[in-house]
Amino acid sequence: MDWKTFQALLSGVNKYSTAFGRIWLSVVFVFRVMVYVVAAERVWGDEQKDFDCNTKQPGCANVCYDHFFPISHIRLWALQLIFVTCPSFMVVMHVAYRDDRERKYRAKHGEDAKLYNNTGKKHGGLWWTYLISLFVKTGIEVAFLYILHRVYDSFYLPRLVKCGESPCPNLVDCYIGHPTEKKVFTYFMVGASALCIVLNICEIIYLISKRVVRIANKLKRRGRNIQNDDYNNDPFNNLQPLTRLEMKERPSSLKSTYKPTIRVPSVRIERIRASAPDLSMAT
């Protein structure tokens, strides 16, 4: 399997991912793909050749190996890595579809015309595609962990297994090659898969919460705009005092209608004359 080509394809998903998505890709490459290529393949190697039974009965070792190892760990992990990364290509194909629509739209309406502000921005259908890919990846991870747990009984690899399958003459003892080393790598790959599940769940929560906050802010802004429009359309809120020039330009009939009805009572002022007393009469 050409893991370099596989890594080059997945690197294109990195620029469309969130922070959790970038961490997920790093975990997949460093803790799963690299460990698989560098160490895990060499540890397992030709595992059937290292499976020894204390009998020379032809076919007994093969039947016992198939009974205890119906599918190899290394092949199961290879399938898991392929299936778990396939949903990420859904995002890349959706962005490519947007780029093609943008190219056709510009060819039809001119170079300055735009159908999308940013074809790689997670809005509209691309947001749903990205969210569905996260759910699919999480489901695949859980499914492969269940298969591994179901087949190998809690991810445990014993040193000795007892086999009584036909054509074995009786209950024979079979020994697994490098059991401790295989057990360590099994637990490590299971832990890395569990970490990827946690990162996918965190990314799902992050995307949904961010979308909810954006919708709530949009509804708040819409409510404020409606209130402002209602205030501006109210005729009583738009009354403005008339200037003197506008009052002069009004017809006399209209001026009379705006005359105040309250009349100020006139005050009659009488002058009081003070006369000097007649002093001649007093003498």
Score class of each variant (00 low, 15 high):
Met1Leu: 04
Met1Ile: 09
Met1Glu: 02
Lys4Gln: 11
Thr5Asp: 15
Thr5Ile: 15
Phe6Tyr: 08
Gln7Tyr: 03
Leu9Asn: 15
Lys15Tyr: 05
Tyr16Cys: 07
Thr18Ser: 13
Phe20Leu: 10
Phe20Ala: 14
Gly21Met: 01
Ile23Pro: 00
Leu25Gln: 05
Val38Lys: 10
Ala39Ile: 09
Ala39Thr: 10
Arg42Asn: 01
Asp46Cys: 11
Asp46Trp: 13
Asp46Ala: 14
Phe51Asn: 02
Asp52Gln: 13
Asn54Arg: 02
Ala61Asp: 01
Ala61Gly: 04
His67Ser: 14
His67Pro: 04
Phe68Ser: 11
Phe69Ile: 10
Pro70Leu: 15
Ile71Leu: 10
Ser72Tyr: 01
Ser72Trp: 07
Leu76His: 04
Leu76Cys: 12
Trp77Arg: 00
Leu79Ala: 14
Gln80Gly: 13
Leu81Arg: 01
Cys86Ile: 15
Pro87Cys: 09
Pro87Arg: 04
Pro87Met: 02
Val92Ala: 11
Met93Asn: 12
Met93Glu: 14
Met93Leu: 15
Arg98Gln: 14
Arg101Leu: 14
Arg101Gln: 10
Glu102Val: 03
Arg103Val: 01
His109Ala: 10
His109Val: 12
Gly110Lys: 12
Asp112Trp: 11
Gly120Asp: 04
Lys121Gly: 06
Lys122Asn: 07
Gly125Tyr: 08
Tyr130Arg: 00
Ser133Ile: 07
Val136Cys: 07
Lys137Trp: 07
Glu141Ser: 03
Phe144Arg: 04
Tyr146His: 03
Arg150Asp: 09
Val151Pro: 14
Tyr152Gln: 02
Tyr156Lys: 15
Pro158Asn: 15
Lys162Ile: 08
Gly164Ile: 13
Gly164Glu: 14
Glu165Gly: 07
Cys168Trp: 01
Asn170His: 09
Leu171Gly: 05
Val172Ala: 02
Asp173Gln: 13
Gly177Leu: 09
Gly177Asp: 06
Pro179Leu: 05
Pro179Tyr: 12
Thr180Ser: 06
Glu181His: 04
Glu181Tyr: 01
Lys183Met: 13
Val184Leu: 15
Tyr187Ile: 02
Met189Ile: 10
Gly191Trp: 06
Ser193Ile: 00
Ser193Glu: 01
Ser193Gln: 02
Ala194His: 10
Ala194Pro: 00
Cys196Phe: 08
Ile197Asp: 01
Ile197Lys: 00
Val198Asn: 09
Val198Trp: 03
Asn200Val: 01
Glu203Gly: 05
Ile204Gln: 14
Ile208Glu: 14
Val212Tyr: 05
Val212Leu: 10
Ala216Thr: 03
Asn217Trp: 11
Asn217Ala: 12
Leu219Thr: 01
Arg221Glu: 08
Arg222Leu: 11
Arg224Tyr: 07
Ile226Met: 06
Asp229His: 09
Asp230Phe: 08
Asp234Pro: 03
Pro235Ala: 09
Asn238Gly: 07
Leu239Trp: 12
Leu239Gly: 06
Leu239Asp: 01
Arg244Lys: 10
Glu246Gln: 15
Glu249Asp: 12
Arg250Gly: 11
Lys255Cys: 09
Thr257His: 08
Pro260Gly: 06
Pro260Gln: 12
Thr261Ser: 13
Arg263Lys: 11
Pro265Arg: 14
Pro265Phe: 01
Ser266Lys: 11
Arg268Glu: 10
Ile269Glu: 02
Glu270Gln: 10
Arg273Tyr: 09
Ala276Ser: 08
Asp278Pro: 01
Asp278Glu: 04
Met281His: 04
Ala282Asn: 00
Thr283Cys: 04
Thr283His: 03
